Simulated scan of single mutants.
Amino acid sequence: MKSVREIFKTKEYLLDEPEVERLVEYCEELQDEIVEFKFQKTNNKELAMLDMLREVIKGCNAIEKEQMEHERFGYEVPNYQETISNLKSYIYSRCKDEKIWL
């Protein structure tokens, strides 16, 4: 992307025109908004990833608790295959929703 100065380098005198000055100001505002939007978009993906990781950790902690209860009290053995499948489905679903490509 060219800067304003590069665009007008052969006709810099046009930069002094009021309409061009307003246009340049408008372009600078848009550039600031684009930078802000990109930051928010990146930040949102980071937040989505953190949220997803927290949920995965929560799921892992739950299955560990089930394993300890099985060992201690003889409760039903955790279904590890189902848990793994559920976690994978959750991760892929969230990634699709948040447009995060693994």
Rank of each mutant, 00 (worst) to 15 (best):
F73E: 12
Y90I: 10
E71G: 03
I84M: 11
E55Y: 03
C60M: 03
K45G: 07
F73W: 11
I91H: 06
N61S: 14
V4L: 07
E98W: 09
K58A: 12
D32M: 07
P78F: 03
E19Q: 06
Y92Q: 10
A48T: 06
H70M: 11
E46Q: 04
Y80V: 07
E17H: 03
V35Y: 10
Y90E: 04
M49Q: 03
H70P: 01
I34H: 04
I57M: 15
G59W: 00
P18D: 12
Q67K: 13
A48G: 09
Y92N: 13
M1Y: 08
E21L: 14
E64K: 05
F37C: 13
M68I: 12
C60R: 09
K38G: 04
E46A: 09
K11D: 13
E98Q: 14
R5L: 06
P18F: 07
E29S: 15
L23T: 12
D97E: 15
P78R: 01
C27V: 12
E6P: 00
P78T: 04
D51C: 04
L47C: 02
E33P: 01
E21A: 03
I57P: 02
T10Q: 09
Q67G: 00
L102T: 06
C95I: 03
E28H: 11
L102R: 00
R72E: 07
E6H: 01
Y92G: 08
M49Y: 05
E12R: 03
K88D: 02
Q81I: 12
E6Q: 15
T83M: 09
E36W: 09
K88C: 09
E46K: 12
L50C: 07
L50R: 01
K2V: 08
E28C: 12
E98K: 09
L102Y: 00
L14F: 09
E55H: 02
K9Q: 13
V24S: 00
N86Q: 05
I100F: 04
R72A: 14
E28F: 13
M49L: 06
D32T: 11
K65N: 10
N61Y: 10
M49V: 11
E6K: 10
C27Q: 08
I91G: 00
C60Y: 01
F8C: 05
V24H: 01
R72C: 14
N43V: 08
Y26H: 13
Y80F: 14
R54W: 02
L14Y: 09
Y92P: 00
F73H: 05
E36N: 04
I100Q: 10
Q31N: 09
M68L: 15
C60G: 02
N79Y: 04
L23E: 10
C27P: 00
K9W: 00
F8Y: 12
E28L: 08
E25C: 07
I34S: 08
D32I: 01
E25M: 03
R72S: 13
E55A: 09
K41A: 10
N79G: 04
K65E: 15
R22G: 03
D16Q: 14
Q40C: 13
C95G: 00
I7G: 05
N79L: 06
I34F: 10
Y13A: 10
T83Q: 04
D51R: 05
K58F: 15
T10L: 13
E6N: 10
R22S: 04
